[in-house]
């Protein structure tokens, strides 16, 4: 895969809801024709899917990665990052008080929903 294809795939993956092809070439700072070729190669490789989309009456495509990038929200509870991420303390997850606090935040979020 060329660098440009890799970059295009990263951009598509980072937009969980998908990105319009008419926006993609601007984000990649390339022309639309080159973008079409890159998109075709990613489609042929089965890495993305293409859904017809109308934007202000103009036909374009919504591009979505088949292997979606992780949803970063899964590490947050009440705005707090899961304490295990980047933790360098000796790990006893069963008795970790930081993890318990985070679980309380989670439960609170659930309750509020």
């Amino acid at each position: 895969m060329s660098d440009q294809e890799e970059e295009a795939l990263k951009v598509i993956q980072s937009h969980r809801q998908g990105v319009l092809q008419s926006e993609l070439w601007k984000l990649l700072d390339i022309d639309s024709r080159k973008c079409s070729r890159i998109v075709k190669r990613l489609l042929d490789a089965g890495l993305i899917e293409r859904i017809e989309f109308r934007s202000d009456g103009i036909k374009t495509y919504l591009l979505r990665a088949k292997k979606r990038a992780i949803d970063p929200c899964i590490i947050l509870a009440g705005g707090e990052v899961l304490p295990c991420i980047g933790c360098d303390q000796e790990c006893t997850p069963e008795e970790c008080a930081l993890l318990l606090d985070w679980m309380y935040q989670l439960a609170l979020e659930e309750y509020q929903e």
């Binding site: 990263k10 990038a69 899961l82 997850p93 970790c96």
Partner: peptide
């Protein structure tokens, strides 16, 4: 920073066993 989603995914995979244990 274009790699941030991949890096985060690796870290989450690493800590998942802690959450399962808890």
């Amino acid at each position: 920073l274009d790699r941030v989603h991949d890096v985060l995914e690796e870290q989450v995979r690493d800590v998942l066993e802690h959450l399962d244990a808890r």
